[in-house]
């Protein structure tokens, strides 16, 4: 017998059962359970990836409310489309495609209403560590704003790749996976994005 937070795994051909907590289950198992209507299993998937999802959206759309709403909406759409999920792929890679489409649509709609990225996102970026001197803080604040504005001026895809590499600290392999492109393309996109960023931050370099 297993408690509510445990699940029995029966291994064919072996006459014993393994018990593990549901939190330890891998994505594939959780997805299979979610496909069978187990919302608790899907909840664990959401909890596993919610922070990564939120920060991905935040980097793209620049506002807390937008990032929260879009990352949650993407989970809802993922849940509804779970039966189309290819179990050989990684869940987050598949989820990220839904999320980025939602974010790009959101940005396109926002552009139509003439709201700028910095209008809603100015305070969403923070410097690591605090300067002790007041003048140091002023400089850091200026730099922070400059970086944010420079990011705002980049094209969406350029900003996306910088967020994935420099803010989410994904490897080239991971970026290639989430963007569904070869590593060479990741490097070349990154080069173009950083070149554009370098031009915008020239004064501060």
């Amino acid at each position: 017998m297993f408690s509510q937070s445990q699940i029995a795994i029966k291994i064919p051909g072996m006459e014993h059962e393994l018990a593990m907590t549901i939190e330890q289950l891998d994505d594939r198992t959780l997805i299979a359970q979610s496909q069978n209507g187990d919302k608790r299993a899907f909840g664990l998937l959401v909890k596993r990836y919610m922070q990564r999802a939120y920060y991905s959206a935040l980097g793209l759309v620049g506002s807390h409310d937008g990032a929260l709403d879009l990352s949650q909406e993407a989970f809802i759409r993922a849940y509804r489309a779970l039966n189309n999920f290819d179990p050989d792929k990684r869940f987050f890679t598949w989820y990220y495609h839904i999320l980025r489409n939602l974010c790009f649509n959101f940005l396109r709609d926002r552009a139509k209403h003439a709201r700028t990225f910095s209008e809603v996102g100015t305070s969403r970026i923070a410097l690591v560590g605090d300067g002790t001197e007041a003048s140091d803080n002023v400089e850091r604040e200026e730099l922070r704003k400059a970086v944010w504005n420079a990011l705002e001026d980049l094209r969406d895809q350029e900003r996306e790749i910088i967020i994935l590499k420099d803010f989410q600290e994904l490897s080239y392999k991971e970026i290639a996976e989430v963007l569904a492109c070869p590593i060479g393309t990741v490097m070349s996109r990154l080069f173009n994005a950083r070149k554009a960023l370098k031009a915008k931050l020239e004064k501060y370099l």
Binding site: R124, I125, A126, L127, V147, K198, L201
Partner: peptide
């Protein structure tokens, strides 16, 4: 230098 600048930043 660009990398050093972005390295100092993180999303809130």
């Amino acid at each position: 230098k660009v990398k050093e600048v972005t390295k100092q930043m993180k999303l809130k």
